[in-house]
């Protein structure tokens, strides 16, 4: 865990981007956080040739231009991107959204918490999971991450 963890966030909400960035500043893990403002920007970024692919992608669902679900579907179709662990990061936790993103291959579903310390706890937990190991035991009941 001494390596730097590359984290990518796609979220259109400025406040949420701020909380996200602040949370990682306070977490005692070496991370590089890259942030894009919506789905179109996300896909453009991922398809650039000279980037380092993130270790984990946090994806908001409700974004203008291209929604999180659309991005998820596209990413899972692109061979060199489909192995990136994806964490859904959304305000709503409706059954339909959870079901759909699970079926489409997201690894974990985070409902944006309503206080800062919980946010830090959740993010820490997500980035310290060994996703390669975790994926094999994936099931619907543990998909929605709750602290």
């Amino acid at each position: 865990m001494n390596e730097v963890i590359h984290i990518l966030l796609a979220d259109d909400d400025e406040d949420d981007r701020l909380f996200f960035k602040d949370a990682f500043k306070e977490i005692k893990v070496k991370t590089v956080v890259h942030i894009v403002n919506d789905g179109v920007e996300l896909m453009n970024h991922l398809l650039k040739e000279d980037i380092t692919l993130p270790h984990i992608l946090f994806l908001d669902l409700n974004m203008p231009r291209k929604s999180g679900i659309e991005c998820l579907t596209e990413i899972k179709k692109i061979p060199h991107l489909k192995e990136i662990p994806i964490s859904i990061y959304s305000t709503s936790a409706s059954d339909e959204d959870i079901e759909e993103t699970f079926v489409k291959g997201a690894n974990v579903y985070i409902k944006k918490p309503s206080d800062f310390s919980t946010l830090k706890k959740i993010l820490t937990q997500v980035i310290t999971v060994n996703w390669q190991y975790h994926t094999s035991g994936l099931n619907r009941d543990t998909f929605l991450l709750s602290i």
Binding site: D13, D15, D22, T91, S92, P113, S114, D115, F116, S117
Partner: peptide
């Protein structure tokens, strides 16, 4: 329903986070 679940909750959640940040 969607507006209530998403659009109303979002600002509220932010208020809560900001308060928790100030308090903590």
């Amino acid at each position: 329903n969607h507006a209530a679940s998403h659009d109303l909750q979002e600002p509220l959640r932010k208020i809560q986070i900001f308060i928790s940040r100030i308090v903590e």
